[in-house]
Design a protein around this nucleic acid. Structure first.
Length: 589
DNA sequence: GCCGTTTTCGGCCCGACTGTTTTCAGTCG
């Protein structure tokens, strides 16, 4: 039995699609689509194919049917697939590394590899680069001077891009987008401008920043855009779209249309791709053809929409919130008028994960502000309650008695604050480590000093799956442990989350009336949106917390709310959308 | 090769841009 990661499998399936494209694109048109769809689907799946095979649930992945399923089983059994070998038999393996280079597709890669008889996948990119520099590509049929130079540029960029993580965290993408919007609005003909794409859908990481502008003079807007002073390079510049690269390799894509087509452009450019494809297939069955321009009716006339809501309504659908446009059933729900009423920032009544500067001699980090300062900020945010949850005192530096004394002192402090702050309720928490043994870092009588505990993993992240699951469940089994903080431990662009059996953990959380944290810190956003979706379906509750270590961090709540929205959460799924009285009831449950 | 509230057969999203073709192929989102 061999094993492959989802990323490896997706790559293999894309290579098969590439192989079919080279063999005969028109003949295998739909096989190519099917393999690409299966590859996308497997790559973005929250479950590993390896596990799905073990559970005999491979069909659960959309786009994987009987045939591809059979091939994948063969792959895991033998390490290779006869059918795949047959397809790739006469195709040089040197093709495939080139597909990672921007502007290279199967056809172009095949032409070049064939023309020069290249065979070595390890060397092929360097070889093509050298051939371009030696002016040997321009003379090939369907190539020329310009495309030869473009190959050099593309490989240069590929080499830079390879050494760094290319996706941005949300706040950075938002800043880049906002800066561009204010620049664009300086052009007189711009009536409105919006950031769209994954930024509007509030994905945790953003590839390119997509922007739509409504103007009666697209050409002027495109020229203005391409003149952006902070650009590194113009990738393309047409009549209504243009793309530029900023320093740091950040790409911005622009599309400009008349204001009377705003509705369809907003819809189109917000995506996701999967949502749009599904929506267009749905419309096609009704005899409509959708595009950014509008809706083409059966008689060929184009109906234009200036409001996005009208665009959806015309198709018989309710307007769909951008955060859930991922083809996860939202189109079906919009059709049957059963879309969820998603949680909103204004529904949030408190924040449980706040680190003040209160000195309790922890081995982890402190906050920068006093409890009183953070209370004042919570009041300013309109919260009904706030929970303090500093890290537990270091158990390496203190014995149990000393820890107990430190916490008693802290309780006195919190009691004082309750008396002097009648306009907000204060919840007494701590963030308590789940040790490698599965025990909590505090004794029972220490934990009894608290209203409840947030528990989390802060050590030995590499613990293997089954052991990690046991460790987590053991930590969560204490009656005071109500919230499981930053559950996967991931740090975006820095560290993958640890491996655990999430289904088992979610089941435990649900059955024992506990909550999963959605951590709003922009490089955490943990629990991830896809796991939030899964956990909510299983009936879990969540708390959206900021994990603030300073006053300004308390404004990050919106990022966590976005994750909850992307997981289809409504008010009733979120513990800190409860009133204080309901909250107390939940804490004691 | 996948898939189903018109279907287990007969469909399968849509358009922009570039470079090389003088009418389109390839790539991208």
């Amino acid at each position: 039995m061999k094993s492959f990661t989802n990323v490896e499998i997706a790559r293999l399936l894309r290579n098969i699609a590439g192989g079919y494209t080279i063999k005969n694109e028109s003949k295998y048109r739909f096989q190519i689509l099917a393999y690409q769809k299966a590859a996308d689907s497997i790559e973005s799946s929250s479950k590993e194919v390896k596990d799905l095979i073990a559970e005999n649930k491979l069909n659960a992945i959309p786009g994987v049917g009987e045939s591809i399923k059979k091939h994948l089983l063969e792959l895991f059994e033998k390490g290779e697939v006869e059918h795949f070998n047959e397809i790739l038999k006469e195709i040089s393996p040197a093709i495939f590394p080139l597909l990672d280079v921007p502007s290279f597709g199967p056809k172009k890669a095949f032409k070049l590899v064939s023309a020069f008889g290249l065979k070595d996948p390890e060397k092929v990119i360097d070889q093509i680069y050298d051939l371009a520099q030696q002016n040997k590509i321009a003379s090939l049929e369907s190539f020329g001077e310009k495309s030869q130079n473009d190959i050099i540029t593309a490989i240069d960029e590929y080499r830079i891009g390879k050494t760094k993580s290319s996706r941005m965290v949300l706040p950075l993408a938002q800043e880049i987008g906002e800066n561009m919007l204010s620049y664009l609005k300086k052009e007189k003909s711009v009536s409105e401008a919006y950031t769209l794409g994954s930024l509007r859908r509030k994905k945790s990481t953003i590839g390119d920043v997509d922007i739509a502008v409504f103007s009666n003079n697209p050409k002027r807007v495109i020229d203005h855009f391409a003149d952006y002073p902070y650009k590194d390079r113009i990738i393309e510049k047409g009549d209504i779209t243009s793309s530029i690269i900023l320093s740091g390799n950040k790409q911005i894509d622009l599309m400009v249309l008349n204001p009377n087509q705003a509705g369809s452009l907003l819809q189109h450019f917000t995506g996701s791709k999967e949502h749009n494809v599904k929506l267009r297939e749905f419309a096609l069955k009704k005899g409509y053809s959708l595009s950014e321009k509008g809706i083409k009716l059966k008689d060929g006339t184009l109906k234009k929409f200036d409001k996005e809501k009208d665009f959806y309504n015309f198709l018989g659908l309710d307007w769909i919130p951008p955060e859930i446009r991922e083809n996860n059933g939202e189109i079906e729900a919009a059709l049957s008028h059963t879309l969820p009423e998603l949680i909103d920032e204004k529904d949030i009544k408190g924040d449980f994960h706040i680190h003040s500067d209160y000195p309790l001699d922890s081995s982890h980090d402190y906050g920068k502000n006093s409890m009183q300062e953070m209370i004042d900020k919570a009041v300013a945010l309109g919260y009904e309650y706030i929970g303090f949850s500093e890290h537990n005192p270091s158990i390496g530096n203190h014995n149990e008695e000393e820890v107990y004394e430190i916490l008693k002192q802290r309780n006195n402090k919190i009691e004082q604050l309750k008396k002097s702050n009648k306009n907000i309720r204060i919840i007494n928490l701590l963030e308590v480590d789940i040790l490698t043994s599965g025990k909590l870092a505090l004794s029972d009588r220490c934990l009894d000093l608290l209203d409840m505990a947030i528990v989390s993993i802060h050590s030995s992240f590499k613990t293997y799956g089954v052991k990690m699951t046991k460790r987590i469940l053991s930590g969560l089994s204490h009656k005071k442990a109500k919230i499981f903080a930053h559950p996967t431990g991931r740090l975006i662009n820095q560290r993958n989350g640890y491996d655990a059996n999430w289904e088992e953990i979610f089941k435990f959380i649900k059955e024992n009336n506990k909550a999963l944290e959605i951590n709003s810190w922009p490089t955490r956003l943990d629990l991830r949106d896809d796991l939030v979706f899964q956990a909510r379906e299983m009936g879990c509750k969540f708390t959206i917390n900021t994990d603030s270590h300073a006053l300004s961090h308390m404004d990050n709540m919106k990022f966590g709310v976005s994750v909850a929205k992307r997981g289809w959460c409504t008010k009733k799924d979120i513990v800190n959308a409860m009133s204080y009285n309901d909250l107390i009831h939940w804490i004691k449950s």
